[in-house]
Nucleic acid binder design. Structure first.
Length: 115
DNA sequence: TTGCTGACCGACG
DNA sequence: CCGTCGGCCAGCA
């Protein structure tokens, strides 16, 4: 995948997040592990925090923690905005948690295993 | 330059 | 089962 030409860890994260198809979600740890950083899942979240800085729109609402909880909803300006976006993609959210998370989970390492 | 913080995760008791 | 702790690394005061 020549798409992953990002020099920094952040740009790689942005690339992966952008590749998340509509109606699917992934976790910070999955992205971190896919990038080979393993335990640096926090950096993925931090990259999301800086994602507003990017000119490209980052679908950060498709990135949640490993249990499918909308841990970062408070960073979307309005807490309900993230859930709204997910519901707009046929992803059910209940009590700040994605319903049937296992079905909508998108693993970069699995979907992009050719990498 | 040093040190604290953070949208996480896994291990341990 | 549930609370706690360490590690990961880039920004910022």
């Amino acid at each position: 995948m020549e798409a992953f030409t990002g020099d920094s860890f952040f740009e790689k994260v942005y690339d992966v997040v952008r590749l998340i198809p509509s109606g699917r979600v992934t976790s910070y740890g999955a992205i971190a592990r896919f990038l080979g950083s393993g335990g640096s899942a926090r950096m993925v979240g931090w990259a999301m925090n800086s994602s507003h800085s990017q000119l490209n729109e980052i679908p950060a609402h498709r990135v949640v923690n490993r249990i499918g909880m909308l841990s970062g909803k408070h960073h979307f300006g309005n807490p309900d905005f993230m859930q709204k976006l997910l519901e707009n993609e046929n992803i059910k959210v209940e009590n700040d948690q994605i319903v049937d998370f296992d079905s909508v989970f998108w693993d970069p390492g699995k979907e992009l295993e050719t990498f």
